[in-house]
């Protein structure tokens, strides 16, 4: 059971389409949750306002109603919000009761749904060997910077990897035949929603993170967060326009790198990226040739 979240249907459509393609190659069928709503994007930290927990819990109720015990996510922010809301009601039955009675849906949430990120599916259920199998165009000479950001590994209670020394993206990169590069900013925040009202913060972070990756020799950077993608891609281009000496680093979603390695970059919608990955990825695609 797959929960896309809003971005995957709009600005991150290339993330969803490449994930669908990569999953098919791996024999995984991502069945979309029939009734889903926005998770709220950020987990509410105020202890007394349960209103903001309703959105993520509703998605879990819908997964339960449709008969599934696991909800798979692609977006790091959805993953984080759903997991933390789930954890809140796992540990606090009084809050669960309040949310259930407020929602007044057909069913109460029984706290039996597990939220898992697509990377956990690849690592823990499939294994990296199987992820390697469909590789048609090994990314031999490609050096890739893994960008974990905040939401995959923090807080530790729900993180899918070690918050200080995560390896899951490095392992994905290796399994696709490329080389992961180590750089200091793999888990540093991109500035998140400051991109709305405080763009300067995000411009600085986009420059710092991409320059850090470039200095370490990376050809491109991968992420699983649509907000990080926007900040590192679009804001990095703005920074590059203001600073011509900046070398732009293309930003790919995790499943776009998989689709490229599996031989079908056309599903990636690279034409929608602010920083063109076509010079970096040595494969001519229909979409890129249209330029």
């Amino acid at each position: 059971m797959y929960y896309p979240g809003c971005s995957l249907k709009d600005t991150a459509i290339g993330f969803e389409e490449s994930a669908m393609y990569a999953s098919e190659q791996l024999g995984i069928h991502l069945k979309e949750l029939e009734r889903w709503n926005c998770c709220g994007t950020v987990y509410s930290l105020a202890t007394d306002n349960l209103m903001k927990q309703v959105a993520p819990i509703r998605n879990l109720v819908h997964a339960q109603e449709e008969g599934y015990d696991t909800l798979y996510t692609l977006c790091s922010m959805c993953d984080n919000t759903e997991k933390r809301a789930n954890r809140l009601v796992q540990n606090d039955s009084e809050k669960l009761d309040k949310i259930n009675s407020f929602m007044d849906l057909e069913e109460d949430y029984r706290v039996e749904v597990t939220v898992r990120h697509y990377l956990e599916l690849l690592r823990d259920e499939l294994g990296w060997e199987k992820v390697s199998k469909p590789v048609q165009s090994p990314l031999d000479d490609l050096k890739v910077a893994p960008y974990y950001g905040c939401m995959l590994t923090r807080p530790k209670e729900i993180g899918l990897d070690d918050p200080h020394n995560p390896t899951v993206l490095d392992d994905l990169i290796t399994s696709l035949g490329a080389t992961p590069v180590d750089y200091p900013y793999h888990s540093e925040c991109c500035g998140s929603y400051n991109t709305v009202e405080n763009q300067e913060i995000v411009l600085k972070q986009a420059a710092k993170i991409s320059e850090g990756a470039d200095t370490a020799g990376a050809d491109l950077l991968i992420t699983s967060c649509p907000l990080c993608h926007y900040n590192l891609d679009t804001r990095q281009r703005e920074y590059a326009q203001q600073n011509p000496s900046h070398k732009p680093v293309p930003i790919l979603y995790i499943t776009q790198l998989m689709a490229v390695a599996y031989g079908n970059p056309d599903v990636c919608r690279f034409e929608e990226h602010a920083i063109d990955p076509s010079n970096t990825i040595p494969i001519k695609t229909k979409a890129l040739n249209k330029r």
């Binding site: 994007t41 709305v196 009202e197």
Partner: peptide, 24 residues
């Protein structure tokens, strides 16, 4: 904290706007 009348939302993705409004 966010003044909707002064906000230029042009080109911003929904994930940025929703998170900004949830926090501000």
């Amino acid at each position: 904290e966010t003044d909707l009348n002064k906000l230029d939302t042009d080109g911003l993705p929904e994930i940025a706007l929703v998170s900004n409004f949830r926090k501000k």
